[in-house]
Nucleic acid binder design. Structure first.
Lengths: 206, 206
DNA sequence: GTCTATATGGCGATAGAC
DNA sequence: GTCTATCGCCATATAGAC
């Protein structure tokens, strides 16, 4: 009996992907050369072309993956069958954890979306984003009198802002408030989970 | 009597500066070519070199100006002699107004600071940023019992986050929530001044 | 699959005519 | 001050040996 081979990427391919992710995230597509990626992956420059043909194709692959991880995270939690307050807690908790391991992720997406907004067209279609679902859930809480009357869109954006901003502005904040001490900043970020959960809960008390 | 001539930039120079600002903000230094700037300014490529010698020098000029306008705004309000609550209102109001006219400003600074953190060293020295002043003011309000006990650093970052994030994430939010309608998004941003002022005041009630 | 060598093109920067 | 012409470099990408 023939066992069909799983489509598993070669080790070299994986190395390139990892290196490309790292460099693109930090420096953007224009600020990253193929040589730079090859060096980071400790392989020959030509191999990048062998596996991905063009820089653009490689970039798209990285970008789509990054964008999905950024978006799907929230969608996922929104759909869980738990109380509203628990959802907020979990969104904050898991979003901050995601970003702790991907500090450059939000800045990367922002920069590349500004640079070329056309990317969004295809992506948002495929991602199948349904903001209405989130909005509705918030509206229901208001109707039930559980939280005070707020614009659901503003509220949702507030939650995201409080989670994401410290990572976007990290180089600045870390330097200004923590003398560029990475460890202390990360401790601060961890405290933040509790801090902004309280902040948000308090702000919507009815 | 000789009237000393004011050091006034030529029209060409101004055009270059304006075009450079526009292109750099959106595409970053690596994503912007001198030809691109020249085209946007409707002048010959060589004139850029004539006035600013190198791309790097031109970029630094733009970046420093952008960074200052981004930072000094808060400092300014912090120092005003008005009540704490008024300060918060004014920071929100004027920060959002600034960003309405400079949507790309925060993303630009973030990207360039990530790409080359060394820039921060010199800049933060010169900018003479004193976060302690802000922190102290918040601490005093807590001691006076005017607001509940919050970590002043978290609180300060929260205020900034709520103001700045909608501009950083504008392309995404505008598309997802407003079908990419610019006017509606701007109306939304204006509502936001009142919305997040309430949100913040509510969240720190003692 | 991996390497070296090379083609091709664009960019930053300068020289020099006007 | 403004333009054209050009140099030198580096990046993407391909060809072809192994």
């Amino acid at each position: 009996m023939v066992k069909y081979k799983e489509k598993s990427a070669s080790e070299t391919e994986e190395r390139i992907l990892e290196a490309a992710k790292h460099e693109f995230m930090r420096f953007g597509i224009e600020g990253t050369s193929i040589q730079q990626i090859a060096d980071a992956a400790c392989i020959n420059k030509s191999l990048v072309h062998y596996y991905f043909r063009t820089k653009e194709k490689l970039f798209k692959r990285i970008f789509i993956e990054a964008f999905s991880s950024f978006i799907s995270h929230v969608e996922d939690i929104i759909n869980r069958d738990i109380s509203f307050q628990k959802k907020i807690e979990q969104i904050i908790e898991s979003y901050i954890d995601l970003l702790k391991n991907n500090s450059y992720l939000p800045g990367f997406i922002i920069h590349e979306v500004n640079r070329n907004p056309d990317r969004l067209f295809e992506l948002i279609q495929n991602a199948n984003i349904k903001p209405q679902k989130i909005i509705n859930q918030i509206s229901i809480e208001i109707e039930k009198g559980k939280i005070r009357k707020v614009d659901p869109r503003h509220f949702f954006i507030n939650v995201l802002a409080l989670c994401i901003f410290p990572f976007i502005a990290r180089p600045l904040l870390q330097r200004i408030f923590f003398n560029n001490n990475e460890k202390n900043y990360m401790k601060f970020i961890d405290e933040r989970k509790k801090e902004i959960t309280e902040f948000i809960i308090q702000s919507i008390k009815s």
